[in-house]
Measured scan of single mutants.
Amino acid sequence: CHSECLGNCSQPDDPTKCVACRNFYLDGRCVETCPPPYYHFQDWRCVNFSFCQDLHHKCKNSRRQGCHQYVIHNNKCIPECPSGYTMNSSNLLCTPCLGPCPKVCHLLEGEKTIDSVTSAQELRGCTVINGSLIINIRGGNNLAAELEANLGLIEEISGYLKIRRSYALVSLSFFRKLRLIRGETLEIGNYSFYALDNQNLRQLWDWSKHNLTITQGKLFFHYNPKLCLSEIHKMEEVSGTKGRQERNDIALKTNGDQASCENELLKFSYIRTSFDKILLRWEPYWPPDFRDLLGFMLFYKEAPYQNVTEFDGQDACGSNSWTVVDIDPPLRSNDPKSQNHPGWLMRGLKPWTQYAIFVKTLVTFSDERRTYGAKSDIIYVQTDATNPSVPLDPISVSNSSSQIILKWKPPSDPNGNITHYLVFWERQAEDSELFELDYCLKGLKLPSRTWSPPFESEDSQKHNQSEYEDSAGECCSCPKTDSQILKELEESSFRKTFEDYLHNVVFVPRKT
């Protein structure tokens, strides 16, 4: 048989008469490798580009789960590009990614509803959504962080984005990388972005840091009482949809009607710091009717980097990364020049730590249904340095008659930039024990000054392991946590139920 035959053949030295091919099969003959313009397919066939392209389009058009959109890589027609490569849609070739590779997620039936953290986790790592997304989240724990972890990498949506009755959302900033909504599939009414009845939605994105392009379709905003109209108009300008909307697409009466839409800028007039305090004062603000001013709200939190936005980490279910302080308005003076500047002394802060701070007014709604208010920009203030805590785990070892090696770990709280350490030492008198000992005694162990690591005695271990207080009263049991108490109650309830079950099964009433 021919060298490319495997198993047997019907005619000697003829690659077209093989029972099976050793390498690849091409047009009725066995070959060692697939010549151009053919590609290896499933490690035994040679196919042309049209064959591989037909497989790709067949799966793409069917949208069946589990099928493969075949691509070409290293002269092979394979189910998908290997790690580190992405497909070129024009020629199906796998090309190296520039940075992290995109991950295209194809949605069944063309859309997916995100109504819980669990459903959001199914899209973790996706960068391109081939379909439409509907966000409908009523509640949950730590929602802002969970949504950002699972949806934060999405850069492109081919269909539309719909935010509907998501009472738990305060902001859409968890879509931190969303840059493009194509609108290839539109919501009824030709809408590519749809926001309806979101009672706590206050911000779409921080438009000073976020760009969003909507290729096709219109915007729809109705019944978002805490979303200011200025935020919607800003989205029109940034996304390129200005002029597409009709009169009733953006409701003037049901958007922002319960919001404090600040239209003035508060400026800080005085800032002073110490290692654990920050004193702030800002310019006074009074609405047209000074009785509408209820006070100020001061927001602050630790910020290692200057990239904080107002609604980071917030949701309507209680999660809030900001510390909020309510401040009463100052006494009002008739003389504008003698107006008191409101302020606040922030206490209990960490030394040498940068804080993000902003302040906003708290006002009631005027009778004319106009909203007044003022808010400052987010500023960054760093507390002063102070003395560091003591170095940890000092170790001293003498390696000769004239040297001592000293080692330690950095302090747990540096409280500033540590530039150097101060080492103090003092000579001590020799131990009298060394002169009084009889060095001729056998088995004498000389006193040693070398360091030995501390260890816990058996008594201390027994005390720590004991669940009861000892007789001397030195140790006591740790208080039980809520989960331990709940577990004990469940076990007790189970024992009672099981005992009742045994009584009912074992003891049967005697027939009379």
Rank of each mutant, 00 (worst) to 15 (best):
H106D: 04
L107S: 11
L108I: 08
G110D: 10
G110Q: 14
K112A: 11
I114M: 08
T118S: 10
E122W: 06
G125D: 09
C126S: 01
V128S: 14
I129C: 11
G131K: 00
G131F: 01
S132V: 02
I134K: 01
I135S: 00
I137L: 04
I137S: 05
I137K: 15
R138W: 01
N141V: 13
N141E: 13
N142D: 09
A144Y: 04
A144G: 11
A149P: 04
N150Y: 14
L151W: 03
L153I: 14
E156M: 07
E156Q: 08
I157M: 10
S158F: 08
S158A: 13
G159C: 02
Y160C: 14
L161H: 00
A168M: 02
A168V: 06
F175V: 04
R176K: 11
R176P: 11
K177F: 06
R179K: 12
L180P: 00
I181M: 03
R182H: 10
G183P: 02
T185P: 09
I188A: 11
I188H: 09
G189W: 05
G189I: 01
S192F: 00
A195F: 11
A195L: 10
N198W: 00
Q199M: 14
Q203A: 13
Q203Y: 14
D206R: 03
D206A: 14
H210T: 00
N211K: 14
I214D: 00
I214W: 05
I214P: 00
I214S: 04
L219S: 05
F220M: 15
F221S: 05
H222Y: 03
N224L: 03
L227V: 06
C228G: 02
L229Y: 13
I232T: 12
M235K: 00
E236T: 14
E237C: 14
E237H: 12
G240W: 15
K242A: 10
K242L: 14
G243E: 11
R244N: 03
R244M: 12
E246Y: 09
R247E: 06
R247K: 09
R247V: 11
I250A: 06
L252Y: 05
K253Q: 13
T254L: 12
N255G: 03
A259I: 15
A259M: 06
S260I: 12
S260E: 06
E262N: 14
L266R: 00
F268N: 00
F268T: 01
S269R: 11
T273W: 15
K277A: 13
L279F: 07
L280I: 07
W282D: 00
W282H: 00
P287I: 08
P288G: 03
D292I: 07
D292G: 04
Y300K: 01
E302F: 04
A303D: 09
A303Y: 13
A303Q: 14
Y305K: 02
N307W: 09
F311E: 15
Q314L: 13
C317L: 12
C317Q: 08
N320A: 09
S321H: 12
S321N: 14
V324L: 13
I327F: 05
P330V: 14
S333K: 13
N334E: 02
N334F: 03
D335I: 11
P336M: 02
S338G: 09
N340S: 08
G343V: 02
M346H: 01
R347M: 08
R347H: 12
L349N: 00
P351L: 02
T353C: 07
Q354G: 11
A356T: 02
F358L: 04
T361H: 02
L362I: 13
T364N: 15
E368F: 14
R370G: 14
R370T: 12
T371S: 09
T371A: 10
G373D: 05
G373I: 04
K375A: 05
S376K: 02
I379E: 05
Q382R: 10
T386V: 06
P388I: 06
P388T: 14
D393H: 07
P394D: 05
I395K: 11
S398N: 15
N399A: 12
N399I: 10
S401D: 05
S402R: 14
I404V: 14
K409Q: 06
